[in-house]
Amino acid sequence: MRTKLTIALLTFSFFKLIGQTTNCQDKFLNCKEIVIQAFVDNDTNFTSKLNNQLVQMQLCDPSLTGRFTIWYKNFVANYKTEINNELQNLQNEKEMISIQTNNVKAESNKNLSNQIIQTFR
């Protein structure tokens, strides 16, 4: 009986340890999810929810804070780069259309001028 109890406790403790690690990892993932969702939805009311999760994560495993900070820095840097690239592409596209418009206008003005000259000759 005692052996069985020992084995049961050992198993329980083992799974509890594993469970704790998973628990911390879950908190890390929750924080990531909240941030991504907030940025996608542009939801500025995410702070209280995230604060709570960050504190829980830090208490669970302080080393995860560093990992989270690194992840966030990369995430926000990539997000900003992506947004800036999109903006640059849009500006380029607008510039291209503007050039095309000016070319069309210049060409048609030239045609019109030629016709007027021919007509009055």
Binding site: L50, N51, V55, Y72
Partner: peptide, 9 residues
């Protein structure tokens, strides 16, 4: 932890 998370948010 709260102070740090406040800074981060």
């Amino acid at each position: 932890q709260q102070i740090e998370s406040d800074k981060m948010t």
